[in-house]
């Protein structure tokens, strides 16, 4: 497999699995306005997925590949999203903290990808950046509401942060594919993103009266296709139709 293809999978899988998690909330939000807002984010992410996977199908070298074959017909070890985005919708605090951590990373990533030498990736980034700016605005304002809201919301937000924070490093630590893409001027430099990410996160936590965990314990593996136990269940949902009724048009 070529590295560009793999890199596109990493980009697309993050948006897809997070989009999936958010789509599970449709109809179950804390009120109608918030329900609608979360679905908007999910739809933005799925739009990005389609751009990435349509491009990935082209560069894959296999003419049989389509956005759907890439989205639905890989084995678990071939999905390359970070561990953070597959974490479950335990409660609204998890939904918001997961989103906030991802959005900070995502916005810096896209800002870097805007100047990618790969014009297709640069174009996707330019389009997505507007969406993700709004995502970040939404998630960070909710982190503040939960962190500095009531005692209960503060506790729940702190617990979600403590639980999710170790999963976020997985996105930020460069692997071999990302290093190669950076060398070629196609991919982003995660070292720079990681620094910016940590500064922004720290600021957000201060204004939200939340405390970042001291330890730097980091779960890892998502980008190598080694996932948490949740992933198999996500895929059984996601792939159900394509697996149960193979080779059909929908």
């Amino acid at each position: 497999m070529n590295n560009l293809y793999t890199y596109l999978l990493m980009l697309g899988d993050n948006s897809m699995i997070l989009g999936h998690r958010l789509s599970q909330l449709c109809g179950h939000g804390p009120n109608l306005e918030t329900d609608i807002a979360l679905t908007n984010i999910s739809l933005d992410l799925y739009g990005q997925v389609r751009s990435y996977f349509q491009y990935a199908a082209k560069v894959s070298g296999n003419p049989a590949n389509t956005e759907d074959s890439i989205a639905f017909l890989r084995y678990e070890r071939q999905y390359l999203n970070g561990l953070l985005v597959e974490q479950p919708n335990t409660d609204f605090a998890f939904v918001i903290l997961r989103q906030a951590l991802f959005d900070i990373y995502h916005l810096y990533l896209l800002e870097a990808l805007e100047s990618s030498k790969d014009t297709q990736i640069a174009a996707i980034a330019t389009k997505s950046i507007k969406e993700v700016k709004y995502h970040q605005r939404f998630s960070s304002s909710w982190v503040k509401r939960l962190g500095d809201g009531t005692e209960i919301s503060h506790q729940k937000a702190q617990y979600a942060l403590d639980t999710l924070h170790p999963y976020s490093f997985d996105l930020l630590n460069e692997n071999a594919i990302e290093a190669d893409m950076k060398e070629q001027g196609i991919g982003a430099d995660l070292h720079i993103i990681k620094e910016k990410y940590q500064d922004t996160l720290k600021d957000l936590m201060v204004t939200s009266t939340l405390t970042l965990p001291d330890n730097t314990f980091a779960h890892k593996g998502g980008k190598e296709g080694v996932h948490s136990e949740h992933m198999g269940f996500i895929l059984s949902d996601l792939q159900y139709m394509q697996r149960a009724y193979p080779n059909m048009q929908w």
Binding site: E33, I36, S141
Partner: peptide, 17 residues
């Protein structure tokens, strides 16, 4: 119309809805 906990959120909800 819509519901929101403060004016900023009302603006964002209006955008989303």
């Amino acid at each position: 119309s819509l519901h929101a906990s403060d004016p900023e959120m009302a603006m964002e909800n209006a955008r989303d809805v």
